[in-house]
Design a protein around this nucleic acid. Structure first.
Lengths: 129, 129
DNA sequence: ATTGAGCTTCCAGTGACTGGAAGCCCTATA
DNA sequence: TATAGGGCTTCCAGTCACTGGAAGCTCAAT
């Protein structure tokens, strides 16, 4: 398979696939013409990474998860630990965003949003009490 | 004021303040010795940016908000528009994270997390049905 | 023979910093 | 007066995960 087909099948753009090769996530072979020659396992790996990325895992997490996936002597506890840590990070992020959302929505609601210059959003940002 | 004092008072690290000068957010004067000489208005601006950043506004948004703040002929509708757009972006982000959280938490709950290798997290990522 | 699509590499840019190195400036102490 | 330290300066490079673009090779079809 050439990169285009792999891109289509995995949903990952060619550029990104090349980048993943650069950083050693996949190691496709090469055909005589210099084109990358992907095997099924490469496609499989890329799809795996695509799904992990969609769940927000970092590239380093993906690397870890891939190696656990390929390690038959893994313990599921190792996988779970990675996932739980990521879940915690997601929760922290959500909490942070919700706190921003809270403040911001109050400010937006308080701003009349007309042609007049006075604005509680700017007042807040400028540190007025 | 030197950069250290401004950093302490605004809560923004010296490195970041220099960066903000680089990109033209603040334009402190210079003392004879080459040190940056911040006035009260510079400190005020930096604190403004610090609060805007804490609400998740991008640097470009901060630039816009600062210029609106300094523009006496602004209309509050302009400020509100920026804030509402950002609020929408935050909501999108939260929704995306919650969707990840949803999937991930189910997977984590389903993984027994012991010494055995079989793991529903890896199964899911590998595309098993 | 030529087009056009697809592939290759390499370089640069994104956002918003952050770390580090090399070196000047200022104050205090021995 | 020498020196030690801390603070300041600039510049370069790295972060994360791509993404865009340029120059050029390959391949299949016309």
């Amino acid at each position: 398979m050439n990169i285009g087909e792999v891109a289509e099948r995995s949903g990952i753009p060619p550029k990104t696939i090349r980048y993943y090769e650069d950083i050693g996530l996949v190691r496709p072979q090469r055909s005589g013409n210099g084109y990358r020659a992907f095997r099924k396992t490469d496609l499989h790996k890329l799809a795996f990474v695509g799904r992990a990325r969609a769940l927000g895992f970092s590239i380093e997490d993906c690397r870890t998860l891939l190696s656990l996936y390929e390690d038959e002597s893994r313990e599921s506890a190792q996988v779970k630990a990675v996932a739980e840590e990521h879940l915690t990070a997601i929760d922290d992020k959500i909490a942070q965003l919700q706190s921003m959302r809270e403040t911001l929505s109050h400010l937006v609601a308080a701003c009349h949003g007309d042609h007049r210059p006075d604005c509680p959003i700017l007042s807040d940002l400028s540190g007025e009490l």
